[in-house]
Design a protein around this nucleic acid. Sequence first.
DNA 1: AGTTATCTACCGACTAGTTGGTCGGGAGTC
DNA 2: GACTCCCGACCAACTAGTCGGTAGATAACT
Lengths: 191, 191
Amino acid sequence: MATDTYTRILDCAQSLIVTRGYNAFSYADIAAEVGVGKATIHHHFPGKADLAVAVIARYRQATADGMGAMAAQVTQADMRLRAYVGFWEQCIRDNNAPFCIAALLAAELPSLPPEVAEQVKAHFDELIGRLTMFIEEGLRSGALKSPDSAETSARVLVASVHGAMLAARVAGGDAELFSSITQAALQRLNG
Amino acid sequence: MATDTYTRILDCAQSLIVTRGYNAFSYADIAAEVGVGKATIHHHFPGKADLAVAVIARYRQATADGMGAMAAQVTQADMRLRAYVGFWEQCIRDNNAPFCIAALLAAELPSLPPEVAEQVKAHFDELIGRLTMFIEEGLRSGALKSPDSAETSARVLVASVHGAMLAARVAGGDAELFSSITQAALQRLNG
DNA sequence: AGTTATCTACCGACTAGTTGGTCGGGAGTC
DNA sequence: GACTCCCGACCAACTAGTCGGTAGATAACT
């Protein structure tokens, strides 16, 4: 189903979105980097919106898988949150994919094709949903404390992570800065 | 010095950047909305980067003026932070300019012309600097509490505000959501 | 006062290059 | 023969930016 070329186009598109967002990458960029004709990209993804949707859909799946695997390994709620934040800290440190594509696309939201915007919203909902579950469990077991609801706490954490990503990007990819901001957000839940 | 047309071009460019970012607006868009020829825009701002730099430079000045006036009126540190956050809450509620252009451009940073990127960084530095001063004063007077340094506290607050902007945008301009996230960030400093 | 020179604001028409997207066809595989 | 994968060549629309030129105001010189 997923050809090598298909996957490489997807990979390339994702890394271009991470650095430039939706509006500033082109089929020509991908064609040049992957080493295929522009028409090939259109063969796999009829339109630019289709390509972006495929990227985010795969990203959502990867997030679901990754979070599931992590939750299976890590059972304590506070450690789960720490793992989520730590994942991004590592991404920034490795300069690998130092930005959540959903957060980037969220900023561009009003200029996005509707199908793409839907995917972005869906990712946000899923992410908040998952973290809310972790926090709820942590509040029940007493591992976490919060004056706010679990959902609000999840939203505050995600906002801190996304804001910290912006700060780190402005600071030239400063992983320490990201860490110092998000640590403070985590401590809020650790009593 | 500042002609009417000049200012209107600047206004239009700013509102386009707020909704679409740097890469997704064009001289044609501005020309159509302002009702001038494209060449007129080039007359006032030779290149697109010049236009963007002018927008952010004016934005930085407006921020400096606004924060200065606010600090003159509001003397308590916690109320100053509340005023900063409240300003953005109002912007989102009025659907006026519901996003900080510096935060938006920060996301696009790697694809920005160097001069524009410089302006974005400068705004971040200034903003963090101002809020750090407010918080330092609050910590000295005992109006605020924080286990972290004043600068880190400022960065956490800004990150929360920017992250909350993203969340509100994804939620279709939900000012209540922005408020609930940022309130939690403020309470962290109110002991 | 009248003419001339200079400057700013502006515009229509143009350019070279890029954008996303189409089309017909070739190569290989089942 | 049908299907997938891929490509070169092409397209209309759009991109930022340039060009020569016009209208009007201001100033300068006679």
